[in-house]
Amino acid sequence: MKNIKALLAVSAIALAAGAVTVSSLSAATAPKPKAQDWSFQGLFGTFDRASLQRGFQVYKNVCAGCHGLKHVAYRNLAALGYTEDQVKAFAAEVEVQDGPNDNGEMYARKGKPSDRFKSPFPNEQAARAANNGAYPPDLSVITKARLNGIDYMYALLTTYKEEPPKGMKMPEGMFYNEAFAGQQIAMVPPLAPDAVQYQDGTKATVPQMAKDVTTFLAWAAEPELEERKSMGRAVIIFLVVLTAFLYALKRKIWSDLH
């Protein structure tokens, strides 16, 4: 009897939890994105280095024109498998403002690996002014800042449609996108076939680029992911062993009571 009650309560909790997930979805009015296979999912997931490098190329050549990545530093790119000199070269591609110097003046210098990614606009107002009032968000934590963020990114990049469904009128400067909440997005379709020339010769199809840049952004949001998972495996195994010992000791100590 008691067990049935407990079961009831547990199923009520499960139901509530499930319903909560669904509700957050409906509130955002963005449809649940289709789940993709990602190498970094699961208990043993790791980032595919080649895909990360291609994704970085897509970010650099396509996204970086409007979207910042201000929490990531150029030195972090070493984690993608680049050498120290390559990292230095990427950093040196931008000019950053530094100073003041001894004369009290700000000056421009080449980027250094210790610098964080330079944002394309100095502030939000400038970004809006340059983009018809729409604000291209910083992408540093974008996959954590959206529900099912990783699949959502991929869906967003791959579900632009030339024509909206019948009966839907697109305002000037808006594009139809199935993944976006409200299906009207101000972002110009960013990916076209061969938008980048992949250094490793991979064919730059839209799904390929979307997959690569999403992988890169997932890394940018959670650079600790691989360390976290490997440490997590060790911690859980340790705790299971420790708990087994504690249980055995508990049995042993309590055995003289009965």
């Binding site: 208990l43 976290r228 998972k229 440490m231 997590g232 495996r233 911690v235 859980i236 705790l239 299971v240 420790l242 708990t243 504690l246 249980y247 000791l249 508990k250 100590i253 309590w254």
Partner: peptide, 22 residues
């Protein structure tokens, strides 16, 4: 010892969330 055993079980649950679904 009973509390410590319970702590062990709880930490497995807690750390699974911290490391795999933070």
């Amino acid at each position: 010892i009973k509390d410590l055993y319970g702590l062990g079980v709880f930490l497995i649950f807690y750390m699974a969330i911290v490391f795999f679904a933070p």
